[in-house]
Design a protein around this nucleic acid. Structure first.
Lengths: 269, 269
DNA sequence: CCAGCGGAGATTGCATACAATCCTAGCATG
DNA sequence: CATGCTAGGATTGTATGCAATCTCCGCTGG
């Protein structure tokens, strides 16, 4: 029997970007950076992050410390650190004495995620518009093309790549707003949105999303920040409207009885 | 020689809330929650978090794993996990093979922090206004009184408590906006703001801040969400205007030469 | 047939040990 | 005096071991 992790692990091996048309303009990524230089926990987090965002790891999947460690050739200590990072970003949930699982955002959480995006992303679009250079516009346009390239393809691989590219559009845009902190918040929200879509997505909203992205880019080109912000808001509304957030029968009883969302507000002492 | 950590540790001992007038309505806090129930890493994070926000731990302070572990009676493993949490929230910075330090936000980061707050906090105020109940208003009013109580006192202890209470006002308000995710973002920003004030704060802006808080509460009482949002924006502008963000001579050459802000955008793979 | 129980196996929580790296101080050398 | 070099100690990075907890499955008794 092959574990879900190994399946996702396979995809790690023959580099997924081999099938990505325009993978190299992915600015958010650390191109040749020393990112994985010698931070193995972060490398694990990055791989799992991508696997989750790509829907190669389904919500609820158990992330076994020993297994993760074995997959990446490190001890449980390092694997654990990577999993804790994921948990902090809301992509995984760690239950004491039970381990880590890919997060399963509740409908409520899903609404919160999109509300948060509506709160910050129009402002990001507006600011990006103000500070955007010619090359910045090119970068965004390139990202859009990469996205488009996947629309014409068939198969689950292309679908996954399309979802990721669609999210990356938002991240690339945010990277030009000149505020790394907001960009990080958005990165978290986009990643979690991917989980939400995996759980509650209905149609291929992505295609509509792509046209929206094109319109936003046009507004940016025209230097119309307010219009870009407005379009972004509409775009987010549209994505959320395409979700089916009715509480469907939970898979496990444990989850149904779980007291609340795992202590999101228990922040301060 | 007594280490900075021990000094802060002393304050841990004779519970600082002993001198807080209205400490028990601190809703963000987990009152009797099982928070520290059996998550010792989180407990450490909470204590250090408070110590940093209270300015008991100065920016740049070394956070030695062994020392932290000894202070809390746990092994380095657990201490390390707590420090990693702090790092993820931007309250600490971890350098490979060098360890953890209380973060020292650069002027640029400081601007980003306040820009981010301006991005999300007016919306929070507006939403809180919509959803606010009578008891919610009371809770906020109580927080405001607690804040006021510190204004009349002298001494560094009261000053610290005042700063913390001032931040808590924003957090309590956010807790009524019905979006734990945004509340968590804001909690991070408020905590980092405290660091910024420690580094670049000029006057006792807090007193002005308190009158602003009062005006915001009035707007909330009147149900005028837009006014509350506007006041919030002005309030944030005011706080930031009271900072001296001129690049003052860096303490250490190492920091001055440090390549960039430690990989905030190196998020995705 | 089903609820209750118990023990084996699996998995996590944590402490500790060792290796790798860094920092410091002292000495030598120009 | 300034610079370079080299132990030695201190600190972090990682693996591993053990105890605590959970999960699962078969058993018993009703």
């Amino acid at each position: 029997m092959q574990s879900p992790l190994e399946i996702a692990g396979d995809l790690f091996q023959f580099s997924p970007q081999a099938l990505e048309p325009g993978e190299d303009m992915n600015l958010i990524a650390s191109p040749s950076t020393d990112a994985a230089n010698e931070d193995r926990a972060r490398a694990i987090r990055d791989r799992l992050h991508d696997a989750i965002v790509d829907h190669r790891l389904a919500p609820g999947t158990k992330l076994n410390e020993a297994e993760v460690g074995a997959l990446f050739g490190v001890s449980r200590t390092v694997a654990r650190a990577g999993l804790q990072m994921l948990a902090y970003e809301g992509l995984a949930r760690i239950e004491r004495n039970r381990g880590a699982f890919v997060a399963q955002p509740s409908p409520d959480e899903a609404r919160q995620i999109f509300e948060a995006r509506r709160s910050i992303e129009p402002g990001i679009a507006r600011r990006a518009c103000e500070q955007l250079t010619a090359e910045g516009l090119e970068t965004i346009a390139a990202q859009l093309e990469a996205e488009a390239a996947f629309l014409d393809r068939r198969g689950p691989q292309a679908r996954r790549a399309e979802i990721k590219a669609s999210g990356d559009f938002h991240l690339v845009l945010a990277s030009f707003a000149g505020n790394p902190i907001l960009a990080r918040f958005l990165a978290e929200l986009v990643a979690r949105s991917s989980l939400v879509i995996a759980l509650y997505g209905r149609s291929g909203a992505s295609s509509c999303g792509h046209t929206h992205h094109g319109e936003i880019l046009d507004a940016l080109k025209a230097g119309e920040g307010d219009e870009a912000a407005h379009l972004m808001l509409r775009h987010l509304d549209h994505i959320e409207a395409d979700l089916d957030l009715r509480l469907r029968g939970g898979n496990s009883l444990r989850d149904a009885v779980a007291p609340w969302e795992p202590s999101v507000l228990a922040q301060n002492s």
